[in-house]
């Protein structure tokens, strides 16, 4: 079903509960009563069209209006990406970490295999943090400064001072793939690790890993297909001011 502005916000969640993540990350709280998407967005100072486009593309992987996304403010996108980082680092990752630790505890008498998994995941968390911190401390501030310059039609002082030498190409050069290890972890758990007796815990761990992978894929798609091309356009615009 096509998501539209006159749809009730509560119905949207019934349609696809995964969109709860979008609603939370865009900065909207639950408790909608009978309000429509448009009404809820306006109350929360969220651009309705931006919300609709994000919700549609998270709901249906074939729907991805790239050009349309370029027209939205970079700030909105960054705000959304930041909340996603936060959610992944502060909530999803610790949850998986906790589950792995439990497995190690439960099985330490019989096998050391889960320590391997734990170490593998610890290494992954470190990489993920580095990756996300780089975006938080360099890329996002850069894009915000760039956007300010374009709005004021001149290179601002702050931009000249901090980012005159920087461009998005530099970021792309040391931008590494953060999904590969999750893919590996999934396959190791499904195919190669002898399963423990309590498969309920095991399944719930795998389930969380699948969700994390999907979340990271959606996140990277927004960064790679929208944010970065948009920043390139903005860089050109600044050049031609």
């Amino acid at each position: 079903m096509l998501i539209t502005a006159d749809m009730k916000m509560a119905d949207l969640i019934h349609l696809d509960f995964q969109l709860l993540a979008v609603i939370q990350r865009i900065g909207i709280n639950l408790g909608f009563r009978e309000k429509t998407i448009d009404e809820v967005c306006k109350e929360n100072d969220v651009d309705t069209d931006f919300f609709i486009q994000i919700a549609r593309s998270f709901h249906d992987k074939d729907y991805f209006p790239k050009e349309k996304f370029f027209t939205f403010k970079a700030e909105w996108l960054i705000h959304f990406l930041r909340r996603t980082h936060q959610c992944i680092l502060e909530y999803k990752i610790p949850e998986i970490e906790e589950k792995i630790k439990l497995m190690v505890e439960d099985l330490k008498e019989t096998t050391r295999n889960y320590e391997l998994i734990k170490n593998f995941f610890t290494e992954y968390i470190r990489e993920l943090r580095v990756h996300m911190e780089l975006e938080e401390t360099q890329v996002f501030p850069y894009v915000l400064a760039l956007s300010e310059c374009i709005e004021s039609k001149t290179k601002t002082e702050g931009f000249e001072k901090y980012f005159n030498e920087y461009n998005i190409q530099r970021y792309l050069e040391d931008h590494n793939d953060i999904e590969e290890k999750v893919f590996d972890l999934k396959n190791i758990l499904i195919k190669y690790l002898p399963p423990p007796t309590d498969s309920c815990k095991y399944n719930s761990l795998l389930f969380e890993i699948f969700k994390l992978e999907k979340d990271l894929q959606d996140h990277s798609k927004l960064e790679d297909k929208v944010l970065i091309p948009k920043v390139k356009l903005m860089e050109n615009e600044l050049e031609n001011l």
């Binding site: 295999n113 391997l116 998994i117 593998f120 290494e123 992954y124 590969e180 290890k181 893919f183 590996d184 972890l185 396959n187 190791i188 195919k191 190669y192 690790l193």
Partner: peptide, 17 residues
């Protein structure tokens, strides 16, 4: 064949096997 892409993933596989 294994569905594992990273070196650390391959290391885990190699130990398990």
């Amino acid at each position: 064949k294994l569905g594992i892409k990273t070196v650390s993933g391959l290391t885990v596989y190699a130990i398990l096997n």
